Simulated scan of single mutants.
Amino acid sequence: MVTRTAAKAGQENDQTVAAEGGAGRWRDAILVTGLRVGVILLALVLWQVMSGPVLPEYAVGKPTEVFDALVTMLGSSAGWTDIKVTAIEVAAGFGIGVVLGTVLGLLLASFPLAGRVFEPLIAAVNGIPKIALAPLFLLFFGIGAWSKIAIAVMGVAFVVFYNVYLGVRLRERELVEIVQVMGGRRHHVLSYVTIPTLAAPFFAGVKTGGPLAILGVIGAEFIASTNGIGHQLFTAATNLNAPDEFAGLIVLITMTLALNGLLGWLDELALRRLGLSTRRRPAAETA
């Protein structure tokens, strides 16, 4: 009877601690969010006040003018066409780059001789600034979407390749040998050792590649394009139209945050399915 009562009291204490911990995390999240909003509002107020007396208005505009330009952009068919074109180019370049980098990393890591032959060549090509290849891709693919997609592919593929390549090479050899001794074949090693080992570096490369895809597309649209957010930014800069410039930047920031949020959600989902999510918890949380 005493043991049962003690066990029940222990369970109640655990539930109380968990509830207090959950409430504490909510308070911390609300505090951090409130501080972020406060910083943004303070920056906007200072921007509005200093534009003109301190900062040249033609170069920075005012938040109220930027808001009007953003509303005009989102309320026009031309603005949504630019957003749609850039979003398609980023999505296509990002997807192709992830697939290409993953396949190339797995192949070269699985065949050491091929890795030793091609790794220096890949490193040499990766050393070329991607935007410097834009004129070459324009000659190959023309002024349309594929030249922008090719730049995005180059930026994403190399990052994903190195994360996958090094992840496979650094996997624990003992685990591979244990699976092989137990009769496992190559696909068993892939399922039970390689994929769990690669999950974290793969998604790290994917998260890094997302902004690079956007950067490549916008840079290529700056050089030569007839539509897209980069074309809109270039036109606004040429006309010294600061409100339109900042409105385009806000759209780009929104696209980047949305892409990062989606990739973060996929990262957590994949690690949870693989049973690796507990490894991501901070030390303070698991203590």
Rank of each mutant, 00 (worst) to 15 (best):
E268Y: 10
T254P: 01
L274H: 05
T235E: 04
G155P: 09
W26N: 00
K148C: 08
L121P: 06
Q48K: 06
V45N: 02
A114V: 14
T194D: 06
A43V: 04
R273F: 00
A224V: 06
H231R: 13
T254W: 06
V217C: 07
V99S: 04
V90E: 03
G34I: 12
L190D: 05
G216R: 05
A59P: 10
A224M: 13
T278A: 13
T254R: 01
E57S: 11
D267K: 00
Y192E: 07
P196Y: 05
T256D: 07
Q232N: 12
R173V: 13
P196T: 08
E12R: 15
V251C: 15
A9K: 12
I143C: 03
A132Y: 05
H187G: 00
F141V: 08
T72I: 01
A283T: 08
F222P: 01
P243V: 05
S225V: 02
A109F: 04
A237V: 02
R186G: 02
N227F: 12
V2Q: 09
A9F: 04
Q232H: 13
Y58W: 11
E65P: 01
R171V: 11
D68E: 15
R279G: 14
K130I: 10
V71R: 13
L35N: 11
L31Y: 13
T3G: 09
T194K: 00
L215M: 14
V117H: 07
L233C: 07
V159D: 06
A283P: 01
I250W: 01
F111W: 09
V164A: 01
V159G: 01
L108Y: 09
Q232T: 13
N239Q: 12
D14N: 08
K62W: 03
L262A: 14
G95Y: 06
T254S: 14
L138R: 10
P243M: 06
I218M: 10
V193F: 01
P53C: 07
S147Y: 05
A287M: 10
L257Y: 02
R279P: 01
L271T: 10
A200H: 10
V117E: 05
P135R: 02
V66E: 10
L70C: 06
G210V: 08
V60W: 02
